[in-house]
Write a protein that binds this DNA or RNA. Sequence first.
DNA 1: CAAAAGCGATTGACACGTCTACTATTCGAA
DNA 2: TTCGAATAGTAGACGTGTCAATCGCTTTTG
Lengths: 172, 172
Amino acid sequence: MGEMTANTRPQRRTRRMPTADELRIWREYIETAELVRAHVAASLQRESDLSTGDYVILLALSEADGHRMRSSELAAHIGWDRSRLSHHVGRMERRDLIRREECATDSRGAEIVLTGTGAEAFHRSTAPHLREIRTVFVDALTAEQLAAAGDVARALRAHLASEPRAAIAARR
Amino acid sequence: MGEMTANTRPQRRTRRMPTADELRIWREYIETAELVRAHVAASLQRESDLSTGDYVILLALSEADGHRMRSSELAAHIGWDRSRLSHHVGRMERRDLIRREECATDSRGAEIVLTGTGAEAFHRSTAPHLREIRTVFVDALTAEQLAAAGDVARALRAHLASEPRAAIAARR
DNA sequence: CAAAAGCGATTGACACGTCTACTATTCGAA
DNA sequence: TTCGAATAGTAGACGTGTCAATCGCTTTTG
């Protein structure tokens, strides 16, 4: 299912368009990843009433000293920008999953603190969430396919990092 | 609830948790796909001021008879639900990329019609968009990796389709 | 020390998606 | 034929993300 016809045409790389096959694989790649991501997210939501964002934040706080973290630390840790974190944390605070406290050492700062509710929700969610990932992703693939998925991801990232525009976009 | 205690028999497949390596690949898989998707979307936005959703709709209308389609047909064609399409089309109408007309044969219905502006925007966007996909995705991978990416996607979809819950979730 | 520059975090505006509810119309069966 | 169910589309509420602006506090520096 993957025979590519030999390409002997000496067009410049950046001018060439993808073939129909390449485009199909592109779409399958993006759409499948999104489908699987959505599936796992839906499971997490169903089982534990948590979004993936909630989970990421609760995980970070669970592992943090005193179950608390400075807002920007947390943002850096999970790779979000401060605005996104602030919005999300606002919503989580309304649901009593975390709370905000002012920072003793820097009055500009805020600390995000895990609440009991939040800790409990996180702990209830972990095992089913990980099992779902195993069920939907790991168990769907052979060992070779799993390794190949990792290789592909690594290659894409490496290529993106070497692209000038990619670097600019990623830096924001 | 309490059946997780020490067990004397081999664990069932669905009970096992992913290993650290498996989890790392899971994260790389999901995050990389998202990164690459976002990169291509940003390029499309930069070059043509179109979102991926805009592009999908404009593509469908470009190929449609008379550059127009019934709303639900369009939705089915691109795999969106009617509400999502209606919201998106509302935003696109404000930007004069499409317009809505009432349907002659069914007064409940609406037709989405490509405007000149929309057609022009789409045609300007196509080649750069496809080239970007080639640059960021196809050129990043060897032929084997590309084929493997397709295989992985196929395996994941097949597995999802065979999961009872997946089928339910996907059907909505 | 005071003004300027920098930093931490929040906010508002908007795009996008999902879910549910609602309106209007068409269709199907009693 | 009429009335209830199904269908087409829209609309509102809300979660989520990004971007730019803002606000208060800290640090730097003239």
